[in-house]
Each structure stands twice: as structure tokens, then as C-alpha cells.
Amino acid sequence: MKRTVSQVAKLTGISVRTLHYYDETGLLPPSEVTEAGYRLYDDAAMARLQQILFFRELGFALMDIRGILDDPSFDQTQALVRHRELLTLKRQRLDGILRLVDSLLKGECSMRFDAFDASSLEEARDRYAKEAKERYGGTAAYRESEKKAAAYTKADWARIQGEMNEIFDALAAQMAAGAAPSGPAVQALAARWQEHISKNHYACTKEILAGLGQMYVEDSRFAETFEGLAPGLARYFSDAIAVYCREG
């Protein structure tokens, strides 16, 4: 069975724009593109998407996921076993937090904080990531994603981080001042962000940038980062990028 990109989006809850981004970056190419330009996904592509969502749920970077899945020796059964281990740890942590909430709702005075401890999950996830990198680190996708980063010095990383902070701080200031996402100053910052990515990481086309903008609100890791800077910034930046990629 082959599904259109809109059918996949409806089935999975992933936006069409994000699926386009996955195609553009080689993470999830469609199984077929019709003469009219429609992307179609067969069962094999859907199985790959399911694996992508498992890895993403566990906090893996998208390029790392691509490297793992593209390796000819990728073992789906083994991966599912590790997924289950990590998801079980994640569920145990959430169950502990729920029990704490229930006790507080009952009026019990509890000053326990161990329920929030995520160290076991983080340690297991780090071990999994290390094992995956050791096993699949020779793939072309890994080499592509890490080649540039490997050459950076501490000074380079400090410069990159500083440039990124300047852009995000300026965005937060524009939002606080009531500037519309489509405003010229905000659009200039969207353009600057595209340039920053292209210069320091990889060639960032407008299609890729549009996909990133959508992920800033759909992916909890991105959303939490922006919301930590200023409430509402994830949506604000996503809207600004959408305007820039459509009209800029």
C-alpha cells in the first residue's frame, strides 16, 4: 500500500512540511515520486518512519538517526529491544512523578524530589548513543554530519554559540517589543539564521529551513529550548521562518 504525504501526515501527526524536510535531508525519502510531483510512501518507508520516531522519542539527533538507519548492518530487532529498555525507564520515571502528584493531591506533605531524577534514563540513553555511534560511525551520513564539527576548536564553538545567542536574544527582544513575525527586523533575523546554519553546519536551503521552523514547535527538544529563552518564542520564530521561506 502506498500513501501520499498528506495521508502519512494525518496518520502519524507529523506535518507535511516536516516530511518534506525529512526527504530533503535524506532521512526519509519517499518510495516513489509521481510525474505530477506527488510523494508516495510504501510499507518499507513507513517502517523506516516508525524507527525514526522511536529514535526521536529517545532524543537522538536526526542526522545520527539517518546514519544508523542507512547502515547495511542495522538490526531492527536489536534496535527495538533497546527502544523498549529506554522507554521502560522513561515510563518508570513518569510513573514516579504521577505518584508524587497523587500524594500531594491527597494532602500529603511530601518533599521528595527523587521522582524527578532522570539520571538513569540519561545514562542508558548515552550508552545507547555511544554504542550506536561505535557500530554505525563509519557510514557516509555520520561522516557528513561530523566532518565540519570535527575541525572546530573551542574558540570556534564559542563563536558559533555566541552568534546563535545574539540571534535568539534579538528575536526575543523583537517579540517582547510586539514586532510581527513578518516585520522587516524579524525577517532579517530569519535570513541571518539561515546564513548561520549554512556557514557553520550544512547548506541550509529554504526548504530545509522551513522544515526546521516547523520542528521548532513540533519537536519538544527544540520547543523547550526556545521556551526557556522566552515563552512563546518557539511559535514566534516558526512563524517568522514560514513567512521568510514563503515570501523572502
Rank of each mutant, 00 (worst) to 15 (best):
132 A>N: 11
162 G>T: 13
77 T>P: 05
91 R>G: 00
97 I>L: 05
16 V>T: 13
9 A>L: 04
80 L>E: 15
222 F>Y: 15
238 S>I: 04
235 R>E: 07
211 G>L: 02
171 L>H: 06
198 S>M: 10
233 L>V: 03
215 M>G: 14
56 R>F: 05
187 Q>C: 03
31 S>L: 07
101 V>P: 02
77 T>Q: 13
161 Q>T: 15
128 Y>E: 11
241 I>P: 06
248 G>Q: 06
223 A>E: 09
98 L>S: 01
194 Q>F: 04
200 N>A: 07
7 Q>R: 10
14 I>P: 13
227 E>P: 11
245 C>G: 11
189 L>D: 06
112 R>G: 13
25 T>R: 00
69 L>W: 05
16 V>K: 12
15 S>G: 13
57 E>P: 00
67 G>F: 05
149 A>K: 14
239 D>V: 06
215 M>P: 09
16 V>D: 13
185 A>C: 00
130 K>T: 09
30 P>S: 05
66 R>V: 11
238 S>P: 06
125 R>P: 01
4 T>Y: 14
94 L>S: 04
111 M>Q: 12
88 T>S: 03
132 A>Q: 10
139 T>H: 09
23 D>R: 00
229 L>Y: 02
220 S>C: 08
17 R>K: 15
99 R>P: 00
57 E>R: 06
39 R>W: 05
54 F>G: 04
232 G>P: 03
171 L>G: 04
184 P>Q: 02
164 M>I: 14
49 L>I: 06
105 L>K: 14
17 R>H: 15
171 L>V: 01
222 F>M: 01
140 A>Y: 07
180 A>Y: 02
11 L>E: 09
16 V>F: 08
13 G>D: 10
190 A>Y: 08
221 R>Y: 15
246 R>W: 10
164 M>Y: 15
159 R>A: 10
7 Q>V: 05
52 I>F: 13
82 R>F: 09
237 F>A: 11
67 G>V: 09
224 E>C: 03
36 A>I: 12
7 Q>E: 15
126 D>M: 07
102 D>G: 03
173 A>E: 04
190 A>C: 13
144 E>M: 08
66 R>I: 11
26 G>T: 02
59 G>R: 02
129 A>E: 15
18 T>K: 13
102 D>F: 02
140 A>P: 08
144 E>W: 09
112 R>P: 05
10 K>I: 03
143 R>H: 10
148 K>T: 13
88 T>A: 05
248 G>Y: 12
237 F>V: 10
70 D>Q: 08
226 F>G: 08
245 C>F: 14
210 A>F: 07
152 Y>C: 14
45 A>T: 01
126 D>I: 03
12 T>Y: 09
156 D>V: 06
54 F>E: 01
22 Y>T: 00
143 R>P: 04
42 D>I: 00
69 L>R: 07
155 A>W: 15
154 K>A: 14
99 R>I: 01
45 A>E: 03
77 T>S: 12
131 E>R: 02
202 Y>K: 02
63 M>P: 11
81 V>I: 13
118 A>W: 01
213 G>M: 03
156 D>A: 12
110 S>M: 05
107 G>T: 09
138 G>I: 12
202 Y>A: 06
92 Q>G: 03
91 R>L: 03
204 C>K: 05
97 I>E: 05
200 N>V: 03
167 I>Q: 09
236 Y>V: 01
186 V>Y: 05
235 R>D: 07
89 L>V: 00
